[in-house]
Write a protein that binds this DNA or RNA. Structure first.
Length: 278
DNA sequence: CATATGTCCTGAGAGC
DNA sequence: TGCTCTCAGGACATAT
């Protein structure tokens, strides 16, 4: 998403509006009138990312923080439909004339924060970014935790940027049972998790994300992502495992969320992946 | 304090 | 065909 909206750097915001919508408004902070007053005329100086949030940095040092959650999209092109359009920024002085936030389910949020608020409300609440965290850092945070590793990886205060789909893929690549308690993971396993995190996320970014069967996710130009074609376990129940060819992908529920894994090559016991160090 | 559960939202799909 | 029910998963509030 960040890459997709990068072309707006250098543009100036001439107007911010919340299109008329009969749905319950998403969390919007501050109200649209104040929001518009503070962003109007501001230049977009950078587009950043922190975990799963897109950050639009303005010349005033205020930052627009967009949290798309499940179905939110940041778009330069026209949205899939006008019904769920939540924010329109009108732009000038660059290649694009608009930046939109569209969200079908309305779980996403848009906030305009000062640097001080950004620290308190965003930075202080998030762990290190998934792409820059080192394996020792991850291990130190979780080695005494009794939580299951899959559940812990979804905690943004531990590490920022891993969602449900990617947690499953990461643990598959690591060869680790998603139900394994954090306090029973070995050093080499922590390292494998960190390395698999980089591999999965970089690959997903290269393919511009995953457009799942519901078709919701689109890139900034309203095109489909391609990573769904590379999922090894996510949403592949009963399919033969792409690695061992013997196991069949299984779905379980952890913390009210689907987990997909191969029961054959992601085992808690067994010599295949349990390296005795520590 | 750490961990677990409930909550919100909409549309797709299943089942009858 | 048209109805009801369930489910998807982000983050935060509340409960244990």
């Amino acid at each position: 998403m960040r890459r997709g909206v990068l072309p707006v750097v250098g543009s100036r915001i001439t107007k911010a509006e919340r299109p008329v919508c009969r749905l319950r408004p998403i969390l919007f902070e501050p109200n649209i009138r104040t929001f518009d007053r503070r962003v109007r005329g501001q230049e977009i100086v950078d587009v950043g990312r922190r975990g799963k949030r897109v950050m639009i940095h303005l010349g005033s040092h205020d930052v627009i923080v967009i949290e798309p959650r499940m179905t939110g999209l940041v778009l330069l092109a026209d949205p899939p439909g006008l019904a769920h359009l939540r924010l329109r920024l009108t732009l000038a002085g660059g290649p694009n004339d608009q930046l939109l936030f569209w969200d079908r389910r309305g779980l996403g949020t848009v906030r305009l924060l000062s640097p001080a608020e950004l620290k308190i409300k965003v930075d202080d609440k998030l762990g290190p970014d998934a792409l820059s965290m080192c394996h020792n850092e991850l291990r130190e945070k979780l080695k005494a935790s009794r939580r299951e590793i899959k559940v812990a990886l979804l905690d943004q205060a531990v590490v920022a940027g891993i969602g449900n789909l990617y947690a499953a893929e990461i643990l598959f690549l690591s060869g680790i049972d998603p139900r394994t308690r954090c306090d029973s993971l070995t050093r080499p396993q922590w390292k494998r998790i960190q390395q698999a995190t980089l591999a999965v996320l970089h690959e997903a970014i290269e393919h511009e994300g995953s457009t799942l069967s519901d078709g919701t996710y689109r890139n900034a130009l309203n095109g489909e992502g391609g990573y769904q074609n590379y999922h090894r376990v996510y949403d592949r129940v009963d399919e033969p495992c792409s690695r061992c060819k013997k196991g069949r992908v299984r779905r379980i529920v952890q913390a009210q969320r689907s987990t997909f894994f191969c029961p054959k090559c992601q085992q808690r016991r067994g010599l295949h992946h349990t390296v005795r160090t520590n």
